Structures are given as structure tokens and as C-alpha cells.
Simulated scan of single mutants.
Amino acid sequence: MISAAEVKKRFLSQPQFAVVGASKDRTKWGTKILKWYIDRNKQVTPIHPREAELEGVPTAKSLSNLASPQETAVSIITAPPITIQLLKEAKSLSIPALWLQPGTFDDTVISFILENGMEDKAIYGGACILVEGDGIIKSML
């Protein structure tokens, strides 16, 4: 098993990113995280079932609509019952890395991660990417 620091580096070394949980509401954490990627010139796709674009970026309706899911790290900002469904979809698509932001997981979500061998792909239980992301990027230079 690889360390949490290595999983975070794997996450941020992907060529593409997706954010599930962004909306038109700029005060919400999902939208703040989407802006974090945009502000760092990262190739990011917001996932939203109804909006055509968020923050000027075209959306995908689901993870399965991503152009290259096997090369896309996904930030998740959803309630735990939705997070479980996203993890199932991510597993079937071979998504390489997932960052579950605070509040997106519970014991059921953690059990799913462990029972499905996803602990080397999923980041959970630590700080948000807004807190740790820049430091991780700097450590990779």
C-alpha cells in the first residue's frame, strides 16, 4: 500500500481533473474547488447533470461522459449516498485517483473504499485540496 502523500501526488499528477459537486452558486465548496483548478490552469471538467457549463467551462453529465476517465483525477464534493454511487462508477471506469473532500464520506463510504481495494486511489479524512493542493504541487517540482 502506498502512503497518503503518494496518493495525493498521484492525484495531482494526472493530466486531467473533474469536479463533482460544483454549481452556479459561487459560495459552495464545489465551485470554489472548480475555481482552484481553473486558477492553476489545470484541465478540468465540472460534472453536472443539468448545467451545460460552470464558470465558463463545459460540463460533462457524469463521470462516464469524461473524454479520458482513465487519465482524470476526480474531486468529490457530494453527500455520502451520492459519493457511494460515484465511487462505483469511478471503479468501473478505472479512474486513477479520487479526492473525497471533508463531509463527503461516512463509515459506509470508507467501508466501500476498503472492501473494493480503492485505498490506493482515494484520499479521504484529511484536509481539503484548497488547503493542501498548492503544497503538494510545490513538493512535486
Rank of each mutant, 00 (worst) to 15 (best):
I76K: 02
D39S: 08
A90F: 00
L63T: 05
N41I: 07
E51N: 08
N41Q: 15
N41G: 12
R26C: 03
P49N: 14
L66G: 12
I33R: 03
R50A: 11
Q43E: 14
T45Y: 06
S75E: 11
S75W: 09
L54S: 02
T45K: 13
K35C: 07
V20K: 11
K32Q: 11
L34G: 05
G56A: 00
L54Q: 04
V74S: 06
I77F: 13
I33H: 04
S68A: 11
S23G: 03
A22N: 13
N65M: 09
A73C: 00
I38Y: 01
A60S: 13
N65P: 00
L86I: 06
K35Y: 08
L63M: 13
D25I: 07
I84A: 08
K88Y: 00
Q85W: 03
G56D: 01
V44P: 03
G21F: 10
E53L: 00
L66I: 10
K32F: 01
W29H: 14
L63V: 07
E55N: 00
W36F: 14
L66H: 05
A22D: 09
G30L: 06
R40C: 05
I33P: 02
E71S: 08
Y37E: 02
S75Y: 03
R50Y: 09
S64K: 15
W29M: 14
I77C: 14
V19Y: 10
Q70T: 13
G21E: 09
W36I: 07
V57T: 08
I82M: 15
S64V: 08
G56C: 01
